[in-house]
Amino acid sequence: MVQRGSKVRILRPESYWFQDVGTVASVDQSGIKYPVIVRFEKVNYSGINTNNFAEDELVEVEA
Rank of each mutant, 00 (worst) to 15 (best):
M1A: 13
M1Y: 10
M1N: 13
V2F: 15
V2E: 01
V2L: 14
V2K: 04
Q3N: 08
Q3R: 14
Q3K: 14
Q3S: 11
R4E: 13
R4I: 15
G5T: 03
G5C: 09
S6I: 09
S6V: 09
S6L: 05
S6R: 07
K7M: 11
K7R: 13
K7Y: 05
V8I: 01
V8H: 03
V8E: 02
R9L: 09
R9V: 08
R9K: 10
R9G: 05
I10W: 01
I10S: 01
L11V: 07
L11T: 07
L11D: 04
R12A: 09
R12G: 04
R12P: 07
R12F: 07
R12V: 09
R12C: 08
R12K: 08
R12N: 11
R12W: 07
P13M: 09
P13F: 10
P13I: 11
P13T: 11
E14V: 03
E14K: 05
E14T: 14
E14N: 12
S15I: 04
S15E: 05
S15P: 01
S15Y: 03
S15Q: 03
S15T: 03
S15N: 03
Y16V: 05
Y16K: 04
Y16T: 03
Y16M: 03
W17F: 03
W17N: 02
F18R: 00
F18M: 01
F18G: 02
Q19R: 08
Q19P: 02
Q19I: 08
Q19C: 14
Q19D: 11
Q19N: 14
D20I: 10
D20L: 10
D20G: 05
D20Y: 09
D20Q: 13
V21N: 02
V21M: 04
V21S: 01
V21C: 08
V21P: 00
V21I: 13
G22I: 06
G22A: 01
G22Y: 06
G22T: 03
T23E: 11
T23P: 02
T23Q: 05
V24G: 03
V24C: 07
V24R: 00
V24S: 01
V24E: 01
A25T: 14
A25F: 09
S26L: 10
S26P: 02
S26N: 10
V27Y: 10
V27W: 04
V27P: 01
V27L: 07
V27A: 03
D28N: 09
Q29L: 13
Q29I: 11
Q29F: 12
Q29W: 10
S30P: 05
S30Y: 06
S30I: 05
G31F: 08
I32M: 10
I32K: 09
I32P: 06
I32L: 10
K33E: 11
K33S: 09
Y34Q: 08
Y34M: 07
Y34V: 03
Y34T: 05
Y34D: 05
P35K: 09
V36S: 00
V36C: 05
V36R: 00
V36Q: 00
V36E: 00
V36Y: 14
I37M: 14
I37W: 15
I37Q: 13
I37L: 15
I37V: 14
V38N: 00
V38W: 00
R39C: 14
R39N: 10
R39I: 14
R39D: 07
R39Y: 12
F40I: 04
F40Q: 02
F40D: 03
F40P: 01
F40Y: 00
E41M: 05
E41Y: 04
K42C: 13
K42E: 10
K42D: 10
K42S: 12
K42Q: 09
K42H: 11
K42T: 14
V43E: 13
V43A: 14
V43Y: 15
V43T: 11
V43S: 14
V43Q: 11
N44Q: 06
N44D: 15
Y45F: 13
Y45C: 15
Y45R: 14
Y45P: 15
S46P: 06
S46V: 12
S46M: 15
G47H: 03
G47A: 02
G47S: 03
I48Q: 15
I48D: 14
I48A: 13
I48W: 06
I48N: 11
I48G: 09
N49K: 04
N49Y: 09
N49G: 06
T50E: 13
T50G: 03
T50S: 10
T50Y: 14
T50W: 15
T50F: 14
N51A: 15
N51E: 15
N52C: 14
N52W: 10
N52Y: 10
F53W: 02
F53Q: 01
A54Y: 06
A54L: 04
A54Q: 07
A54S: 10
A54V: 03
A54F: 04
A54H: 07
E55N: 10
E55R: 12
D56I: 08
D56P: 04
D56Q: 07
D56A: 09
E57C: 07
E57V: 01
E57M: 04
E57F: 02
E57Y: 03
E57R: 01
L58T: 02
L58G: 01
L58D: 02
L58K: 00
V59K: 09
V59W: 08
E60N: 10
E60A: 12
E60C: 12
V61S: 02
V61F: 06
E62D: 12
E62Y: 10
E62G: 11
E62H: 12
A63Y: 11
A63S: 12
A63E: 12
A63L: 11
A63M: 12
A63G: 12
